[in-house]
Amino acid sequence: MKKQQSGSSLQTKSLSISFGGHTAVNAVSCQFHPNELTVIVGPNGAGKTTFFNLISGQLKPTHGQVILNNHDVSQMPPATRARLGIGRAFQLTNLFPRLSVLENIRLVVQAHSGDGWRFFTRITALPELEAKAEHFLHLVGLSSVAHMLANELSHGNQRKLEVAMLMAMEPDIYMFDEPTAGMSLDEAPSLLELIANLKNDSSKTVLLVEHKMSVVRALADRIIVLHNGEVLEDGTPDRIMTSKLVKDVYLGNAGGLA
């Protein structure tokens, strides 16, 4: 299967997964388009992260399919999907803790460029890898800590590294799982701006799980509300914000939309 030139179409067809008796994601059918930023919202346990895991391959569905460019990828391992252009960042920071920040990113860059099997050329003899890694570090503002170990970073910086690692994958489909969780208020906006800019490239699809409603309204082209593993509402921000169903089930409890 080859990557298409102008973006990828991602589709889920009645995607479901059960753990024991509990159905975490239930018959979710959605189509995602390039040049679109979709925010997935829903209360804790609604199945947002599980939905991401199904798309990126950490979990295999019990029923249903993940379709990428008209091919069923639901049985492929995560690494294969990553190379086909499905990239994701994780909600719980998921780095290479005892490697340097630069090496964390460089690993992503070299996975993308296909240099992972080179066993004789010194990594320092491939400056283009490092240059590219530094570019992404600069983008999120981590250049000055490039040589620290990832587990020595502050929580906020670890979140930035997480985002930078996904950007360095240069996928067609970006999936961010609460990228700003636990970040300070003055750091979050610039990171979100970075994410919002991604979809300006007409071939990129962006999926974002986010809790802060102000953020969601400002960024989203489309909002999907998940509840108990099912799609409750799917539409433009304006429609979602005025939906009585959503208000009752989810947002109503949280004290309104403001």
Partner: peptide, 11 residues
């Protein structure tokens, strides 16, 4: 360091 992440970035 982290085999699930290594897999997730394409290895």
């Amino acid at each position: 360091e982290n085999d699930t992440r290594a897999e997730a970035i394409g290895y």
